[in-house]
Every structure is written in C-alpha cells, then in structure tokens.
Simulated scan of single mutants.
Amino acid sequence: MSNFLGSHAINMDAKGRLAIPARVREDLAQACGGRIVLTANADEERCLLLYPESQWETIRPQIEALPNMNRMARRLQRLLLGHATPLELDSAGRILVPPTLRSYARLDKKLMLIGQGKKLELWSEERWFAWLDEPADDENMPSEMEALSL
C-alpha cells in the first residue's frame, strides 16, 4: 500500500518532462513498478492527480459506475477518465506530462509534488502557494474534522 507524504519542489523542462524525486520514485517502483496514471483533479483546484496504476485501477470502476445522467457525475467522469493518461517512469525517473494536462493545471517550470497518502498532487508552484494563502472555509467543516485532535 502506498504512503505518499511530504511536499517536493521540482522543475519541468520546456518539453513537459519532470523528474520524480528519488524517495517518491522508490515508493512508486515498489507500489506499481513505476507505472502511474496522471489525470485532472475534478475539484476547483486546477492541479493534477498522480496515482500508482494499481490504486487507479481500484477507483476507476467506481468512477465508471457513477450515473452518467447526473450532471455532476458526468463532469467528474469527463475530467478524471477523459484526462487519464497512463505513464511509466523512464530509467532516469522522469515522466512527460501531456500538453492537455499541462494546460489544464496551468503548469509552468516550477512545480510542487504533494503527497496525499495513496496518491500525489502536481501543482504549479505559484498556484500552490496562492492556495496556501487562501483563508480556510470553517463553515463547511465536516463533523469528522471537528473531532480530530492533532
């Protein structure tokens, strides 16, 4: 089971290639042999989601099973399934981010790779730090968070 934690500042070259940090690369090699699926985040945040292939194959049927006559479900399917791109880390631990995904997440040279347990998020560095500066929406806090003690 994957356990992706931490944040990593990384760079992407003009062709859209980026090197996965060594520690994350090791975890990906162990979890899925370096085979991943990169897709759009369906949330309002324009970032990308990076799943180990095995994790993606667990959630993919759940997304496909959503009622496509429901507008929100159809949007989720179009974003997640429509942008899903199987990739494999090369021998140097790099991936090539497709132009459509670079455009969707507004990725430029400086990026942030953010661990989220079973997956990772890939953000534009500028958008990541802007998101961090946004105030929290305490009014919509789920009850599970109210009981959380850190």
Rank of each mutant, 00 (worst) to 15 (best):
D90F: 00
P86Y: 04
L101G: 11
C47N: 09
D90C: 01
A42M: 06
I95H: 08
E44I: 05
L122K: 03
A42H: 07
L122V: 14
S124G: 10
M112C: 05
S54C: 08
R78M: 10
R74E: 04
W56A: 13
E53P: 01
I59R: 12
R94I: 07
A42T: 02
L120E: 06
R60K: 15
P67S: 13
R60L: 10
F129G: 03
Q55P: 00
R74A: 02
R74T: 01
G117P: 13
L107V: 12
L120H: 05
Q116V: 11
Q62G: 04
L28G: 01
E126Y: 09
I63V: 15
H83Q: 11
T39G: 11
I63Q: 07
P61R: 13
E126M: 10
L49K: 04
G33D: 07
G82K: 02
S54R: 13
V37L: 06
N70C: 06
G117K: 10
W131F: 11
E126C: 03
P61M: 13
A73L: 04
D27E: 15
E125I: 06
I36Q: 03
L48T: 01
F129S: 12
Y51E: 04
D27H: 09
R60G: 03
L107Q: 07
Q116P: 08
R106Y: 00
I63G: 06
Q30V: 08
L89C: 11
L81T: 07
D43E: 15
P61V: 12
R106P: 01
F129R: 15
L50T: 09
I36Y: 03
L122W: 05
A65Q: 11
A40G: 03
T58C: 07
R102P: 05
E44L: 12
L111E: 02
K109T: 12
M69G: 15
G117C: 12
A31R: 08
A29D: 15
N68F: 14
E57S: 14
G93S: 05
K109F: 00
L48K: 02
K119N: 10
E44K: 09
Y51Q: 00
A105T: 11
G33V: 09
L89T: 09
L48D: 03
L81E: 10
I95V: 15
R60D: 09
A73D: 13
G115M: 11
E64I: 13
T58L: 15
E126Q: 15
A40H: 05
N68M: 13
L89S: 10
R78Q: 09
P52N: 07
K118T: 13
L76T: 07
L38G: 04
R46D: 05
G82T: 06
Q55A: 13
L80H: 01
S91C: 01
L80V: 11
